[in-house]
Design a protein around this nucleic acid. Structure first.
Lengths: 108, 108
DNA sequence: TCTGATAAGTAGATTCGCTACATGTTGCCT
DNA sequence: AGGCAACATGTAGCGAATCTACTTATCAGA
């Protein structure tokens, strides 16, 4: 999968994996990897800046903790993040309709 | 629809609209607009550079003509472009599966 | 002891869609 | 006659987000 296919779609995906329960960065990476069937293996240089961006934007809130001698920053959805996720899901459906309307992926 | 959602997805869409018949730039814009149900209204500063990029990459070939006193550059798929389109469609399916696996857009 | 997994981060490059601008023709409306 | 919308193509430069490559540190197991 090409790198910039992800552009603009990563944010809602990150929000989606912390929807059920708060997770720390590394766990978010693993969750994305698992939910995508092994396709979405984000480099840390993508994920960590993205998390900070989402926090700065007010969609995530973070908290430090230490588990087994390792420091974790755990992220959870804010109210704004919940709204953002909902609208992100909606925008995905629109986007999908646009691409498929143009691409007609059924046709060989 | 956000601007950079399009990133990496525009190329196969452009190739798709010239699949059936060669079209000139302006007609490609209109075809995209129509097939997307009015959602995909590309600025010329996006489309024309994209067409040149696709030609430089060998996926499109162009030819000048004059119709009704107006100059047109008509683009058609090359053999490489046809292959690229096919793999682009395939990649779209993978991408869609990844996003939907993570997003679960069915869930509110 | 050394490697791999866990954990978080930054710096800098690249890419591409965008805004804004530039140019010219045709045809319709007033 | 004049003006404006639609037709038609293009460039320059900006900005944002993902990437590669690197850094730091702990812990478990071979």
């Amino acid at each position: 999968m090409k790198a910039d296919a992800l552009r603009g779609h990563l944010d809602p995906m990150i929000l989606a994996v912390v929807e059920q329960e708060p997770l720390h960065g590394y766990a978010i990476m693993e969750a994305l990897l698992e939910r995508s069937g092994g396709e979405l293996d984000l480099p840390t240089g993508t994920l960590y800046p993205a998390l900070r961006r989402l926090e700065r934007a007010g969609y995530l809130a973070s908290e430090w903790s230490t588990v087994g001698g390792r420091k974790r920053r755990t992220y959870q959805l804010t109210a704004a993040g919940t709204k953002m996720l909902a609208s992100g899901k909606q925008e995905w459906l629109t986007f999908r309709a646009v691409v498929e309307g143009v691409l007609r992926p059924g046709q060989a």
